[in-house]
């Protein structure tokens, strides 16, 4: 596998990928320094400037309660990013581990482990979410992070299964390849084959799957906001901003800035994730060494 430095310079060599990388770095930094910025709080409304178009005063315009949209998008960065990272982490740790163990083990173990994944996937998501949220009522978890505690639990329960499935499927295919069979025949312990030979070959798949899961997590957060079950005010996320934007869409007059900027923030981030993910996949692919 290539050294990190080489991967890094490969990313920067392509202008589009470099741009995506810069964007991701920028929003991560924004999320980190967000608490230090003198941003408007959610309840600091000002009815005299409600729904004003972008100007030098309010760069991205204001919402229905006269709050500065630019500030709100900056504030939303933190939670949206936290959701994405939480989703990616659960997928990486739980999903990849589970998939490897399942796909690389005996038929019997694989069978039972996959039945469990089936079971989790067989319960409709929204149903689970509402009831998990209800069941966790009154716990410290519920109050933490503007209702985000519950949200992370839900992510943990739900978002590792797609990764587990993909990794398990690929592992099974790879484990039957000649080189893997040869390694086992030569007396290499199965664990070693799994982690040293098969796992590196899975890296491209894993990265592609992660760049697919992170958008789903962000969209899921937006979906929960649509239902009124998402992040609760004062916390702001890009999902709640998109929901607010949807709510003011009307055939009479459009406050285009409310829909444009949060959408751009979401779209740019996911686009950047894709481009960088693609480049990583190309660089890390063992077959292209």
């Amino acid at each position: 596998m290539k050294r990190p430095k080489a991967v890094f310079s490969a990313i920067l060599s392509d202008p589009v990928t470099a741009l995506g990388f810069v964007w991701l770095t920028a929003i991560s930094l924004t999320a980190l320094v967000m608490p230090l910025l003198p941003l408007q709080l959610s309840y600091e409304t000002d009815s005299s400037v409600a729904l004003t178009a972008p100007s030098s005063e309010h760069w991205f315009g204001t919402d229905a309660l006269g709050r500065d949209l630019f500030s709100r998008i900056l504030r939303g960065t933190q939670i949206s990013l936290a959701c994405g990272i939480a989703g990616a982490l659960t997928a990486l740790i739980l999903g990849v581990g589970y998939g490897l163990v399942s796909g690389g083990g005996s038929e019997r173990r694989d069978h039972w482990l996959m039945r469990f994944v089936d079971l989790i996937d067989s319960i409709p998501l929204v149903f689970l979410v509402i009831l998990i949220a209800s069941a966790l009522r009154g716990t410290a978890l519920e109050a933490s992070g503007g209702g985000l505690g519950v949200f992370f639990v839900i992510l943990g329960v739900v978002y590792w299964t797609p990764m587990a499935r993909v990794v398990r499927g690929e592992t099974r295919v790879l484990a039957r390849r000649e080189w893997a069979l040869a390694a086992t025949a030569l007396g290499v312990p199965p664990q070693r084959v799994l982690y040293r030979e098969i796992l590196p070959n899975l890296v491209p798949t894993i990265i592609v799957t992660i760049t697919l899961i992170v958008p789903r997590v962000l969209l899921f957060e937006a979906f929960l906001s649509f239902l009124g079950l998402g992040v609760q005010s004062p916390a702001v996320s890009w999902g709640t901003l998109a929901r607010d934007a949807f709510e003011v869409l009307n055939p009479v007059k459009t406050a285009w800035w409310l829909i444009l900027y949060p959408s751009l923030a979401l779209a740019f981030t996911l686009l950047a994730l894709n481009v960088v993910g693609d480049q990583l996949r190309r660089e890390l692919d063992p077959k292209q060494r």
Partner: peptide
């Protein structure tokens, strides 16, 4: 929002309830 859209389109003669955020528009 759908209530307002259908009223705008003439499909409804009376829509009960308007989302408060649409009021100013």
């Amino acid at each position: 929002n759908t209530l307002v859209n259908l009223f705008a389109n003439g499909s409804l003669d009376w829509a009960v309830g308007v989302p408060p955020v649409l009021m100013p528009f």
